[in-house]
Design a protein around this nucleic acid. Structure first.
Lengths: 130, 130
DNA sequence: ATAGATGCCGTACCATAGTACGGAGTCAAG
DNA sequence: CTTGACTCCGTACTATGGTACGGCATCTAT
């Protein structure tokens, strides 16, 4: 099987070497086989690493990601659905919040035009938000 | 003028008392008038506090918020626009990322149905993301 | 006037998610 | 067979944004 060193794995996963070691310490990645003391990673490890980054982008903490990985191993659909649904709700709320913030920023960027003379209250641009 | 104590201000701003003190230490809120040693806040302080929370929701760090507040004081539109535009781009990217993550979670929640028999790979639900 | 809630202060501590260090071993190319 | 890049390890440090502590002062409602 194709195996890669920690540096290659990290590069493919878009993280640093130290981050891989850190995830290993946290139990998010399994200790891989070693070849003369040097870690050798396979495709599963890369998938797992990428999953961690994706789940992180979805707003899960590393602790929650650890739980997801356990659920995956045990195939616990009920709990997985629970977590997914809770996260979806949180994401929807966050997206709404960010859209509101975006609107405030757009207002700030457009209404307070480059060289207009009236007042340009940055604080006011955010009023009535959230 | 109506003035409130730190506890009331914090409550109205949706933060803790210690957080107000912290913002003050960071220079995000001005030291207010005092009445026998007790801080007395006015409406401007509340507006400012709410602005901080909104700007935070927009993804600004406290340091950046400090800069925004300075810009507001000095009425520096050019820089304010720059920051706003940069932030909007970042927000749009983040929203796209979250929508992608949301899709993965929705897939996880629906395809891996409660009591189906086939495999329910949580990791696979996130494949091809981001 | 007396509780009990608030406020004051500085300093210390917390969680999260890494990042850096430094000396030693190992590998790959020329 | 050497040189430079990569890897090993544990431990310590970083940044961000707060949160907690503890002893004392003050305020508010009865």
């Amino acid at each position: 099987m194709e195996t890669v060193t920690i540096g290659k794995l990290a590069a493919k996963g878009g993280v640093g070497v130290e981050t891989v070691r850190y995830y290993q310490r946290r139990g998010l990645l399994a200790e891989p086989q070693r070849d003369a003391g040097i870690r050798r990673y396979g495709d599963d490890d890369l998938r797992r690493l990428r999953f961690i980054r994706s789940a992180q982008a979805a707003g899960f903490t590393l602790e929650e990601i650890g739980e997801l990985l356990d659920l995956d191993a045990v195939d616990d659909r009920i709990r997985a659905r629970q977590l997914a649904k809770a996260r979806i709700a949180a994401i929807d709320a966050k997206i709404a919040e960010m859209q509101s913030a975006r609107a405030a920023l757009a207002k700030l960027a457009s209404e307070c035009a480059n060289s207009s003379v009236g007042a340009c209250p940055i604080i006011a641009a955010f009023e009535h938000q959230i």
